[in-house]
């Protein structure tokens, strides 16, 4: 049971979007600051630092997580996923991301990373969601640009597309 001293930086190793990474952090450093300024993954944004706006939402070991309510030292050894890991290649978009673009489900794009992470995790759990389920999920995020309607549409469209592709995906599984 090591005690991590407040005044020192401690090595934190974890998996970020499937790649092993490590960095140093004092115990009080928030996961948001650690990801963005120590690791250099700036796709996760900071909007309120008190867990309301949802811009910093990531997944840690599959659990949706407000990075601003998480300490960097807490993710030692964990599997962290962020918006940078959603697409399979740098020049591609995931089905969800593409649905966002088609539906103009973002304007300034600042809150978008967190919303994408929530929806990506949610659609794995609930592949055929109703609109009110999507809205309930989205109520954990604040978006000031869109009025949410196009986000809901994009989510439903992505869910339908993912569901329709499911058999094909399985048959092409390698």
């Amino acid at each position: 049971m090591p005690l991590l001293n407040s005044s020192q930086r401690h090595r934190v190793g974890f998996s970020l979007n499937g790649h092993s990474v490590e960095g140093d952090a004092e115990p009080r450093v928030l996961l948001t600051d650690f990801l963005r300024h120590e690791i250099g993954a700036t796709g996760t944004h900071v909007g309120c630092e008190h867990g309301v706006c949802g811009a910093c939402t990531v997944t840690v070991d599959g659990m949706l997580t407000r990075a601003c309510l998480t300490l960097a030292v807490q993710i030692e050894g964990c599997d962290v996923r962020t918006v940078e890991g959603l697409a399979t290649a740098p020049d591609r978009l995931s089905i969800l991301q593409a649905a966002f673009r088609r539906n103009h489900a973002l304007q300034c794009g600042f809150c978008t990373a967190g919303i994408l992470m929530s929806l990506d995790a949610f659609l794995r759990e609930v592949p055929t969601p109703a609109e009110d389920q999507i809205r309930d999920l989205l109520s954990g995020h604040l978006c000031r640009c869109t009025g949410y309607t196009p986000i809901v549409r994009a989510a439903l469209e992505a869910a339908a597309e993912l569901a329709s592709r499911q058999p094909a995906v399985q048959s092409h599984h390698v």
Binding site: A87, T88, A89, D91, R92, L93, S94, I95, A98, L162, R165, V169, H172, H173
Partner: peptide
């Protein structure tokens, strides 16, 4: 899982 669309 193949879950991508081309960035066109």
């Amino acid at each position: 899982m193949q879950k991508s669309a081309a960035t066109s």
